[in-house]
């Protein structure tokens, strides 16, 4: 009875239990322990096979959670629509104008739509956990899985995998259109490495940004607040840098500019020309965002472990 069984492989065991009519007292499970008198320390032994819950169980639970809420499906659909739709519009526009794309490859056309689509990931990353705090579901979740590290890890795995997959498909589509339509206008031909950066690189980047959102949602617990903070994090550095005219602040300005999310992402697209605006190149943005995600997630684990649910 205590033999571990894979979930899919034993439809027989639980189904042999007779179905109880609605509202019946649950005295119907087979193998029921003898009824204990008021003083009897008789334990109850359940007929359902027992096995130790694992991280994979938590992952499949989180997957069920994320796919069974309509707002998730909607937000992700909107994201795909933005990345692919706007990406196509831009490609068509540039193609129609016939203007030369100086200093870049045809893939650069995909940057702007990913930037916009990313907003959906920020929202969804925050909501993945803050909605649990908002509804009280978090208490149910943590009762079912008191290992809080496991809960957050499962959420992070599921959300990262989901955003990575969706971004990968969308960016690959846009890249194909861009190359097909704009190759003749671009100054350089897109190499395999550049293809990889704007698809896999961008998707990893967006996935990690999703992890940061999840972490901020865990730290703040409040949906609107955490979403605002994330939008601020993405947009503020660039805006602030633009208004720093003073010469003495130029190094701060440069750092803010370089490490702002849009500028980091743009490195993958080579959209900023011959590294005139930023000293980062190649896959550097990924390391920057990975470190940021690690720090944020570390903070989220600490907060989740320390605070009352």
């Amino acid at each position: 009875m205590t033999t571990p069984q894979p979930q899919a492989a034993h439809p027989a065991a639980p189904q042999t239990a007779p179905q109880a009519p609605p509202h019946a007292a649950p005295g119907y499970w087979p193998g029921t322990a003898p009824a204990g008198g008021p003083a009897g320390p008789v334990g109850y032994v359940s007929p359902i096979p027992v096995r130790k819950a694992t991280l994979m169980d938590a992952v499949s639970a989180e997957w069920t959670k994320i796919r069974s809420v309509r707002s998730t499906i909607w937000t992700l659909s909107v994201m795909v629509a933005i990345i692919v739709g706007i990406g196509l519009l831009i490609a068509a526009g540039v193609d129609a104008s016939g203007s030369k794309m100086t200093g870049s490859t045809a893939l650069a056309g995909g940057f702007f739509s990913v930037m916009l689509g990313m907003i959906c990931v920020l929202t969804l990353g925050v909501l993945t956990i803050s909605s649990e705090y908002g509804t009280g579901m978090i208490r149910t979740t943590l009762t079912a899985c008191p290992d809080r590290v496991r809960v957050l890890t499962a959420k992070a795995i599921v959300f990262f995998a989901l955003t990575f997959a969706i971004t990968l498909v969308s960016t690959a589509l846009v890249a194909m259109f861009d190359v097909a339509m704009l190759e003749d206008q671009a100054e350089f031909a897109a190499s395999g490495g550049e293809w990889l950066k704007v698809t896999v690189g961008t998707s990893l980047f967006v996935g990690l940004l999703g992890i940061i959102s999840l972490a901020v949602g865990t730290l703040l617990r409040h949906s609107a607040g955490a979403i605002t903070v994330m939008l601020g994090l993405v947009l503020a550095p660039l805006v602030v840098a633009m208004f720093m005219y003073t010469e003495s602040l130029s190094s701060v300005r440069k750092a803010l500019f370089e490490y702002s999310i849009p500028m980091l992402l743009s490195v993958f697209y080579g959209a900023s020309g011959e590294s005139s605006a930023t000293s980062l190149s190649g896959w550097d943005p990924l390391w920057v965002i990975a470190i940021a995600a690690a720090v944020a997630l570390g903070g989220a684990y600490a907060s989740l472990l320390k605070r009352d649910a």
Partner: peptide, 20 residues
Amino acid sequence: AMHGGRSAYNHLLCLAQSNG
């Protein structure tokens, strides 16, 4: 203590899955 947007079945399913 549940997400209002999830069906009763899915609410219980995710709990069941988390404990195998």
